[in-house]
Design a protein around this nucleic acid. Structure first.
Lengths: 241, 241
DNA sequence: CTCGCCATTTGATTTTGATCAAGTGCAACC
DNA sequence: GGTTGCACTTGATCAAAATCAAATGGCGAG
């Protein structure tokens, strides 16, 4: 039942995938070199500029993607325009909703990004034949579910200050999985996006940034670059004791 | 690759499962009669009184469950006691977080309920051997993820009135999957639970109920029984246009 | 029947965050 | 150098929901 990849240095693996896998641990890791070669025939890399849409709410899904670089935001909008970010995805996350053809959310590059696209039909076929691949996708879905539920607590029960601190803590711990030092990073989202993520207005977000800055919980340069002198202190501000 | 159940009337299937499956479409449907028999050796049914805990936040998971009857609430609590319901599960949902031994949430019977428990170790072993079972669990995880994201929009961007209307609409459409008529039902949650679900206080919930009643969107008897004369109208109040 | 216990409702007041309305700072462009 | 545009900040006011504080109402025990 177990389908195991050969040695990662196996020359059967497409060059582009070899370079990719070395850096990331995405779902492709579940595939044999033959399957990778097959998938690679239909896959294509794309650069996404900030703000460009991967898929829109209500549209038909033709592609799944792997995020190679950057941050992708998942949003839901109401009829009157109110908007909520329901997820942030970082490399090497899988992007897409298996087994449904209509997307319930909009996915949009929050920063300059790079993705690897594969046709839905090809991957769906591969999933049916490869239990290990479904397992990877299942794990990712469960991870996203855990994150969504954590965030529900933040949205429903935290104060504006705690929400903003929670956001900063989230970014600090997710933006660069390689790095050990989480105390300095660039925000991948604008104030408007942060507000949409936290269920606040940009004004409230701005005020809370100012407050955290004045209380020396964070330092900010150029509106985007953040330094955290004491991560535990930030965590306490976030309400995660 | 496909592992198909035999005819549902196959006498190899444990009696208790036959009765169960006929009514529900839970994850056990993915198992062969042999596997069902095996699982059944270790499984046990339990009645849960309202308020009794299935698993606590931070505890070690020893059992997974299938909900046979009733409603189970999934909650998260902060150190200072603030609480958020992050999911509601109805029969025949699967209850548990595969592949993790420590629970990140508390699961508690919201109404009198009945569950079928199986040891984590037995099911985990079965999942490894049965791709179809993992597929069912994957589907359920994706469904819960979709629901969680819908709810994030409600928590982050809707008004108190819209939140309460959204809750009523959710219950109307989920409480009795068999029934065609969704216009009358009993609330499975107390005002306090509803508040925890909506990220509000009980007072605000109560006031919104009163308002919806006065505007003839709903009728309420005995604090728990709700009638909805016009479901579309309720949906508009919920902000789902 | 009455008491006491809950859950729920209702009312008065306060607080938090939203809204409305200017400012500020910075980079691109002429 | 000055103008424009944009993202963000700051300030004043407002509104929604939280908080604090009593009622109310149903229900089981005595």
């Amino acid at each position: 039942m177990e389908v195991r990849r050969q040695d990662i240095h196996n020359s059967d693996i497409p060059v582009v995938c070899r370079a990719c896998e070395a850096r990331h641990g995405g779902v492709c890791g579940a595939l044999t070199s033959e399957q990778l070669t097959e998938l690679n025939k239909h896959s294509s890399r794309h650069r996404l500029e900030t703000g460009s849409e991967v898929i829109g709410q209500g549209e038909t899904v033709v592609n799944y993607s792997n995020i190679m670089r950057g941050v992708v935001k998942l949003t839901k909008v109401m009829a009157d325009g109110r908007q909520q970010i329901v997820g942030l995805q970082f490399a090497p996350d899988f992007l897409g909703r298996p087994f449904l053809t209509e997307s319930a959310i909009t996915a949009e590059a929050a920063t300059d990004s790079e993705v690897c696209n594969f046709p839905r039909t090809v991957l769906d076929r591969l999933v049916k034949k490869t239990p290990e691949l479904e397992h990877m996708l299942h794990q990712q879905a469960l991870k996203e579910l855990d994150e969504a539920r954590d965030w529900m607590l933040t949205l429903g029960r935290k104060t504006a200050q705690e929400k903003v601190a929670s956001f900063l803590y989230l970014i600090a711990t997710h933006i660069d999985p390689e790095s050990v030092d989480m105390s300095a990073f660039d925000l991948p989202l604008s104030r408007a996006d942060i507000a949409d993520f936290l269920g606040l207005t940009i004004e409230t977000v701005s005020r809370q940034f100012t407050k955290l800055r004045k209380e020396n919980v964070i330092r900010i340069e150029n509106n985007r670059h953040v330094t955290v002198p004491d991560m535990d202190r930030l965590m306490r501000y976030a309400g995660n004791d």
